[in-house]
Computed example of a mutant assay.
Amino acid sequence: MLAGRGQLVHIERDAHGVLEVIDDQYTRSLYFGTAARQSSMSHADPVTLVLSYTRAMLAGLLFQPRPAEILIIGLGGGSLLRFLAHHYPEADITVVEYREAVIEIARRFFQLPEHPRIRIEHGDGTELIHNPAQPLYDLILVDAFDAVGLHPGVACEPFLQACQRRLREGGLIALNLWNTDKARCRAHIRCFEAALGQRSLRLPVEARNNLIVFGAPHLQRLPSRRSLQATAPALKQRLGLDFPDLYRQLRRHNTLPLQWLFT
């Protein structure tokens, strides 16, 4: 149990380790037996994205603003699912989580939305993505961490190549990486770029060790700077995230002009 982190609401252990649900004054958080928060939910507004890395993962909406088919690999406390289900009620959303206990905890303690268009599967996302019977997706969000770091299966080239094959024309994949081990993180980026056959778009998360990489292999050219500058404020008004700031961060951290990154 994590002392000093708030009130312990629930604790259990499965075959992969400890799971803890802890409340503080403002949030409810999921921990995997370490000090790192895996997911957080606001008591006052469960739909809002508390952790900055989740907001950064959705910077890809600048380039795919109206996804109709979404795949999320890694449920955690369901932050991305709650947000996307609320703002895109017409989208079909599939979530894959390999720890059954995580799904049960998210349903009991983190207000997961229930809707015919939402499908939560217990299983290995690396197996699902290789299944040709699965649909094509407009947006694939890979946020698959355990207590020790990134799930090894999601950083390998076969998995990422399979993700590419499951993207619709104009679709985009976002991968959450942990940047404390710089050499390993660079290796993950090289694998990502080799699998997609393109340069990645990189977004470090300020004040955290997350690094989000994006790829959109079917796009020959991204929207113009003028177009993105118009899109960002509109998305901010509709979704409540600071997309103009996310856009500025993308420009700051990617040296080539954005419109040529994906050629």
Rank of each mutant, 00 (worst) to 15 (best):
E104C: 03
L75Q: 12
L61T: 07
I93D: 07
F109V: 03
L84P: 05
E97F: 02
H43E: 04
Q111M: 14
P67W: 00
M41I: 03
T94H: 11
A68M: 13
G76D: 02
E90V: 05
F83E: 13
L71Q: 11
S39G: 12
T34V: 12
R55N: 08
G77K: 01
V96P: 01
M41Y: 05
R107N: 14
S42M: 08
L49R: 08
L58F: 10
V102F: 04
S29N: 02
P113N: 10
L80Q: 14
Q64W: 00
V50S: 07
L112P: 04
L30K: 05
S29K: 12
P46S: 13
S40V: 08
P67Y: 01
A35P: 05
F63V: 14
I93R: 03
R28P: 00
I22N: 05
A91N: 07
P89T: 02
I93Y: 02
G17S: 10
G74A: 13
F32T: 06
Y98Q: 14
Q111D: 15
L62A: 03
A35M: 13
A59I: 02
E100L: 11
A106C: 04
V96H: 01
M57F: 04
G78Q: 10
T54E: 04
M41K: 00
E97D: 09
A44Y: 03
Y31C: 05
T48A: 15
A36W: 06
A106W: 04
Y88S: 04
L62C: 11
D45F: 10
V47Y: 12
A85D: 09
E69Q: 15
T48F: 06
L30G: 05
V102R: 04
G17E: 09
G77Y: 07
R99L: 07
R99W: 11
Y98D: 07
L62I: 04
H87I: 06
F32R: 01
P65S: 09
I70H: 02
L84V: 07
P46T: 11
S29V: 00
I70V: 15
G77L: 06
G74Y: 09
R107A: 15
H87Q: 08
I105Q: 00
E114K: 14
D45L: 02
S42W: 10
V21E: 07
P67T: 08
L80E: 07
V102I: 14
L112F: 06
F32A: 14
E104W: 00
R99E: 13
S39N: 09
R55Q: 15
R108T: 13
E97W: 02
A101H: 06
E104T: 13
L19E: 02
V47Q: 13
L58G: 01
R66W: 09
L51Q: 14
E97G: 08
G76R: 06
P67F: 01
A91S: 15
G76N: 04
I103L: 12
E100N: 12
V21K: 07
L80I: 10
E69I: 03
S42V: 01
Y88K: 12
P65T: 05
L30S: 08
Y53W: 13
I70N: 08
L62F: 09
P65Y: 03
M57N: 05
I103Q: 10
Y88T: 11
I22Y: 08
R66L: 11
P65W: 03
A106E: 03
G17L: 10
Y98I: 15
G60S: 14
L51Y: 02
D23I: 02
D92S: 14
P113A: 12
F32N: 09
G33L: 09
